[in-house]
């Protein structure tokens, strides 16, 4: 498969360029905000002297372009803020340093990633199963009550905000029925059962909301697919209905479903902001939101870039999988 290898290499090179452009844009946007992060770090009362000291320590006294170049350099060589005993080290790959949290951004992201990944991957598996199976059922029962029901559920799912459904789920299953924990996260390594137990509500909430678009997509694709001539061929060969629908019908509907799934999952891995907030989970989304509140620019830039990177990677993976799923697509 040398073709696919070249394709991946070319795409990865393009990814580097996109990330560079993106990082510059994000950097300029967040450094253009009128608030001064050094002011917060300096504390109260803040003498002009101390403020100047803080600015120098945080390397905010340099020009914006110089700061951006420092940022780039830090990714490969690491950075050191200040001198002597007070010096703060941020090892490569350094995507900035959070002074309010006193941790390198890289460490913060890696700490929070398992939480977000746990939420995202679990929910994604659920919504894929729910969405695709309901979509197929709807397509097979087109125009009948079962179809109307599935389409109705999809409409509600698409229009419900996640915080509303999340809070309702906490209220009903957490407080009234007392079935599930209402917040918190237990690492998988500590106790897989507790991990799943704490995650089951956010999974279901996210899955129900996301499944909606999969119901619609799967239904539309299946209706189109089941009308094709090769489906008639399969029937004429003597294939049973289940085989016709799954092996011949769903197989063709798979490409757009996988595309949507890859992009959705990539997006969600960058932080399920509202869901994390509602269920008080310390994920990437929560990290980003509190960083915005504290003017922690380094974290905002780092998390934003990381999310963007995930989406670019998701696109790449989707393209590769697309080629594997559809023999007519070539990556030449």
């Amino acid at each position: 498969m040398p073709d696919i290898l070249w394709f991946i290499i070319r795409r990865l090179l393009a990814t580097v360029l996109v990330m560079l452009a993106l990082s510059l844009a994000v950097y300029l946007i967040f450094y253009a905000i009128p608030a001064d992060p050094a002011h917060l770090a300096c504390g109260k009362p803040c003498t002009p002297d101390r403020l100047e000291q803080a600015r120098h320590f945080m390397q905010l006294d340099q020009s914006t372009i110089q700061q951006y170049l420092n940022f780039l350099k830090g990714i490969f060589a690491g950075r050191t803020f200040g001198e002597g005993a007070a010096a703060v080290h941020c090892n490569a790959p350094c995507f900035g340093y959070s002074f309010p949290l006193a941790r390198p951004v890289t460490t913060l992201i890696l700490d929070r990633l398992p939480v977000t990944a746990s939420i995202a991957v679990g929910a994604a598996v659920l919504w894929l199963i729910i969405g695709v199976s309901l979509g197929v059922v709807a397509a097979l029962n087109r125009g009948r009550p079962l179809d109307r029901l599935a389409v109705g559920v999809a409409l509600i799912g698409v229009s419900t905000p996640s915080f509303l459904l999340g809070l309702l789920a906490i209220l009903v299953f957490g407080f009234w029925l007392n079935m599930v924990p209402v917040n918190g996260y237990v690492p998988f390594s500590e106790s897989p059962v507790d991990w799943a137990w704490h995650l089951v509500t956010p999974w279901l909430v996210l899955a129900v909301l996301q499944a909606a678009s999969y119901i619609r997509l799967t239904r539309a694709q299946m209706l189109e697919e089941l009308n094709l001539d090769h489906i008639t061929t399969a029937r004429a060969k003597g294939a049973g209905e289940a085989r016709v629908v799954v092996t011949h019908g769903l197989r063709g509907a798979l490409v757009p479903i996988v595309t949507l799934f890859g992009l959705d999952l990539g997006g969600l891995l960058g932080g399920a902001i509202l869901t994390e907030k509602v269920f008080s989970m310390q994920g990437l989304g929560e990290l980003l939101i509190s960083a915005v509140g504290q003017l922690d620019v380094a974290v905002v830039v780092g998390v934003t870039l990381f999310s963007a990177f995930l989406i670019i990677v998701a696109n790449l993976v989707v393209d590769i999988v697309h080629g594997a799923l559809d023999p007519r697509v070539s990556h030449g």
Binding site: D229, G252, L325
Partner: peptide, 17 residues
């Protein structure tokens, strides 16, 4: 098995996947 059909348009009659 006992009765088989040959279709008009072979491209669309075959499954592309």
């Amino acid at each position: 098995n006992d009765i088989a059909l040959v279709f008009q348009d072979a491209l669309s009659a075959l499954n592309p996947y």
